[in-house]
């Protein structure tokens, strides 16, 4: 093989046809498959890891409200409840607000401010969630405890039936505070997707509506929304998926108590908060398996939501993004 030293590079390429191609193509193929393997691996490891808990408690694992590492009784319901309720609160706040901001950015904003505000919101979407968490702990919780929660307790808390949701003592931390922090955290993310979706509406369509004398609100409600409905729902569901699985923004302020209280002011827990707090210290096999079981439930929840969202957005791209 010493003779190849004198061979010119071009000749070498023709002499070994396809060897470079074979290696390169094989690597690309293998790494693309790795993406699929990763997802499969996540599913397999969660199912396999949670088997002892699922075998011991069976269906009870899903519906039992007791979570007690000392007596080895593990039920996932308080964590599932907390995850769902905090996410619902976050969506109730974030959807109208992000909708308003998106309308502002696409229809009302002076062109001069459009780029700076849009960029600022995109940058805020990149801020790590732990930042929102410690802000919630040090700034929002005291405000909730001294101002917002006493106010809620003395007003809505006095109304029969609904009042039960806002009863009890003002702890500061709790399900409501966690939901609010989540809403602030998903807001920039939600706005940047919703705005992008709004902007897929062709200018001719919007301008025709304006030309017929429609007001801004009518253009948004009757033209932009119907046109981009699928994408907007996709954007909301992506944000919901993010809220469901969020760990750090929630763990600081949710209270970390595995209980289901009637009041949303009371402390609770979420799946991710329970994992963050207990996982590294869980030494007992059943405890560990139960935590992995929580992880499996979270995986199923978020992937159902995110999967639907992605399918919706995919459909939207095929329909309108034909470039």
């Amino acid at each position: 093989m010493t003779s190849t030293v004198s061979v010119l590079p071009q000749q070498r390429a023709t002499r070994l046809p396809g060897l470079g191609d074979a290696i390169f193509g094989f690597l690309a193929w293998g790494f693309a498959l790795l993406v699929l393997v990763l997802l499969t691996g996540v599913i397999v490891s969660l199912v396999w890891g949670s088997l002892p808990a699922l075998r011991t408690y069976g269906f009870d694992f899903l519906i039992s409200t007791r979570w007690n590492p000392v007596t080895e009784k593990f039920g996932a319901l308080p964590a599932i409840y907390g995850t769902l309720v905090t996410s619902v609160i976050a969506m109730v706040i974030a959807i109208p607000v992000s909708f308003g901001i998106s309308i502002f950015l696409t229809e009302l904003c002076p062109p001069m401010l459009k780029r700076p505000i849009g960029t600022a919101i995109e940058l805020l979407a990149a801020v790590p969630s732990i930042i929102f968490g410690i802000w919630g702990l040090f700034v929002l919780s005291p405000i909730m405890q001294t101002i917002v929660q006493p106010f809620l307790i003395s007003t809505i808390g006095q109304v029969p039936v609904i009042g039960l949701l806002f009863s009890g003592a003002p702890y500061g931390i709790g399900i409501l505070t966690a939901g609010m922090i989540l809403s602030i955290m998903v807001l920039p993310y939600m706005v940047s997707i919703t705005r992008d979706v709004f902007e897929t509406v062709p200018a001719q369509v919007r301008e025709s509506a304006y030309g017929l004398g429609a007001t801004t609100w009518e253009v948004v409600w009757r033209v932009i929304l119907p046109y981009s409905r699928v994408g907007v729902i996709g954007a909301f569901m992506l944000s919901l998926g993010r809220a469901l699985g969020e760990t750090m923004a929630v763990t600081f302020v949710v209270g970390n108590t595995a209980k289901i209280a009637t009041s949303i002011l009371a402390p609770g827990t979420t799946i991710s908060a329970a994992l963050a707090n207990e996982f590294a210290e869980a030494s007992d096999e059943l405890h560990l398996a139960s935590l992995l079981g929580l992880g499996l439930i979270l995986f199923i929840l978020t992937f159902a939501v995110i999967g639907t969202a992605r399918l919706l957005l995919l459909r939207l791209n095929k329909q309108f993004g034909g470039h």
């Binding site: 693309a32 996540v42 699985g245 992995l292 992880g295 992937f303 992605r310």
Partner: peptide, 28 residues
């Protein structure tokens, strides 16, 4: 189809909760 599948799974992984990844690596 294989590219579309990989792309779809990849998009799911982009928005997957990071704590799940932690659990996966823990067991591995």
């Amino acid at each position: 189809w294989i590219a579309e599948l990989v792309q779809f799974v990849n998009d799911m992984l982009v928005s997957a909760p990071s704590i799940i990844v932690g659990l996966f690596v823990y067991t591995m």
